[in-house]
Amino acid sequence: MEYFDTLIVILQSTVRVSVPLILAALAGLYSERSGIFDIGLEGKMLAAAFAGAAAAAVTESALIGLGAAIFVSVCLALVHGFASITQRGNQIVSGVAINFIALGATVILGQAWFRQGGRTPQLSGDARFTTVELPFAAELADVPILGPIYSNLLSGHFLLTYLAFALVPFTWWVLYRTRFGLRLRAVGENPGAVDTAGISVTWLRYRAVICCGILTGIAGAYLSMAMTAGFVKGMTAGKGFIALAALIFAKWKPVNVMFACLLFGFLDAMSIRMQGNPLPFIGEVPVQFMQALPYMLTVILLAGFIGKAIPPRAGGVPYVKER
């Protein structure tokens, strides 16, 4: 029973840390499936986290904070779109630039506005998202096995958490069952064919980066307004890149994305849990090894040793209409 309780605790924190990964990886999925590589997920998420926390601190409303987070993130996504779609610039370079601008600007503006060393004020009350208890969670808590699963693992999360998991099947539906999704996938594989069919490659790709911006915006808001109560300098701490790794690990497929993010989240939760606790049979595993594991797994996958990750064929290539 003790092991079971530990497992529930670990799984619970797995869900908690996976949510921003799922949102950011789905964001990357929309963009990359349309042929726009995006290594600026990290920067957009960071900027959104700051904008959300800042707006919520001033207006005392979590919803306005969420709106601000999405707005800022979409703006950055449009900068990336302008550089890589309209100006046909290098998409990697543009993504790197956005990461740096977000990293610097959040601290400079935070210091100028709130004077707390780049932090935003602590959010409380209406300014922060609250957790939702599913019906009968308290009553069912004592039922063996199923009780803890229902009341601790499934209940008691933020609305954004449920939204993130709901977005997985939604994205699958959009991608594989709607006209927009079909065209989105087509423009990432063969933009010439889409153009020949009389559909604007530019507008389609812009819509894809806007979707990406909305989702990284929600991911950022989750970080600073739900998971913690306020923005801290550099709080994304590489989550955007882990999400990118998860997206590749999932071979750019929505349902796989969720499992990849849960796996990476689980590794994260385990590494926190295992600090100072040796594993049976293996002994003590260095925390750093656990932290590096998602990246190593992704490299191994990319190398084609466990399955093969084939990116969208037109990814990273600006589309030039014949003249």
Binding site: G89, V93, N99, I101, Q111
Partner: peptide
């Protein structure tokens, strides 16, 4: 005091953006 080292990070990003991605 408003302007810390982080200002350099912004400039770095802007240089990468304008000299790299938006060079044309």
């Amino acid at each position: 005091p408003e302007i810390s080292r982080d200002m350099i990070t912004i400039i770095q990003g802007l240089v990468i953006l304008f000299a790299g991605a938006l060079e044309n």
